[in-house]
Write a protein that binds this DNA or RNA. Structure first.
Lengths: 208, 208
DNA sequence: GTTGCTACTGACACTTTGTGTCAATGACGT
DNA sequence: ACGTCATTGACACAAAGTGTCAGTAGCAAC
């Protein structure tokens, strides 16, 4: 890596660290970009050369992970059932959280509890979903424009993932995210959520 | 209704109409609030007395509908299975679209295709989901903090709804939204999306 | 080592969003 | 007719985000 690139990475890291520290400490809305740039020792203009917005500093961490989702879906073995492949990709996705549990929890909590961040996160997630839907449709040999099944599989899987993520944050990461995600998928598969013919069972509660 | 209230409603309508016309014509980002207020004949400050942001003018239409979702869920017959109740609430939700099909399509398309609007819409949807999850957990006699099933049922149902909504817009409202939503729910119930044990069937495509 | 190209930076000006404040206006009850 | 209350426009202001320009440092070629 050239000196220029290392320098650039240094500024980026400095900016990220300063931002995350301030954001976690003061909250998102009460932290200005001026404060971040002052802490990082660069000009405000420079901030926008590294990040599109204040939201992006936070979203980027989780966003980088999501960006590869459809690539990893394409890499799943061809004989895997569509929904299984998606499930496996999303559970593998949780690996990124395990490596930096504390940081992940902090950022995820901030994201889920800040309107602006939640919106931005979900907006990005929609793109991942679209990418994965396209890839899944390809795998299934189906036209995603006329067949909703790929989109439904992806939507259901992300619904489970988001639900698990929320539970994970609510429980302050007491359990492993992957465990919760798997549990959510198991509930989905188990048919305990069936729309018709089955009334609400009383017991068999789920841990979180 | 007093004269003051009618006056206020008049300003609100004027603002909404001017905004929607400009937004649909020029796109969201290229329309400024100054243009909207100029068209409506009020000051910029007044705009913010009626709407929190530019996004809210658009979101409000669909947002008002969603606001009542948990109320309507609570009004469902007690003997209805949880997932069925949620499904019925969401299909009933589509009624609001049928009355003003053209306007609904226009606004929904704008919302789904504009990043800022999509983010704001999804952020609001998360609140509806939380409300419905709480209500569903109450119906099921379950603690939503330790049992993910209510949240999963709601998440799955909204996943189906959003998928149907996307398909509806993609098809330029060729089919009735309710038809598409029902179709999505049927696919969900039919087990065609099963995670394990079943490989992708070839035929039986879905129309949208 | 000097010259020239390229990339990064800070500084400044600008637009737009969103909020706080204040004085003026007009409806409403007494 | 009078006081009260809500609404409004006109500022002023903070903050986000963008365009532009000159200065500077790395780097390759000569």
């Amino acid at each position: 890596m050239s000196l220029a690139e290392r320098k650039r990475q240094l500024v980026r890291d400095e900016l990220t660290e300063a931002a995350l520290k301030l954001l976690a400490f003061q909250g998102f809305d009460k932290t200005t970009i001026d404060q971040i740039t002052a802490a990082a020792g660069v000009s405000r203009r420079t901030f926008f050369r590294y990040f599109q917005s204040k939201e992006d500093v936070v979203i980027e961490f989780i966003g980088d992970l999501g960006h590869r989702l459809h690539t990893e879906l394409a890499a799943r073995p061809a004989d895997e059932a569509p929904a299984t492949a998606v499930r496996n990709v999303l559970t593998a996705f949780t690996e990124g959280f395990r490596e930096h549990t504390e940081k992940s929890l902090c950022l995820t909590r901030l994201t889920l509890r800040t309107d602006a961040l939640l919106g931005r996160y979900l907006e990005r997630q929609v793109r991942w979903r679209a990418d994965m839907t396209a890839e899944l449709a390809r795998r299934m040999g189906v036209d995603p424009g006329s067949d909703m099944r790929p989109a439904l599989i992806v939507a259901t899987a992300f619904g489970a993932f988001d639900t698990a993520l929320t539970a994970w944050v609510a429980g302050e990461a007491a359990d492993d995210l992957k465990t919760i995600v798997n549990h959510a998928f198991d509930l989905l598969d188990g048919g305990a959520l069936a729309v018709r013919g089955r009334s609400a069972p009383g017991g068999a509660a789920a841990g979180a």
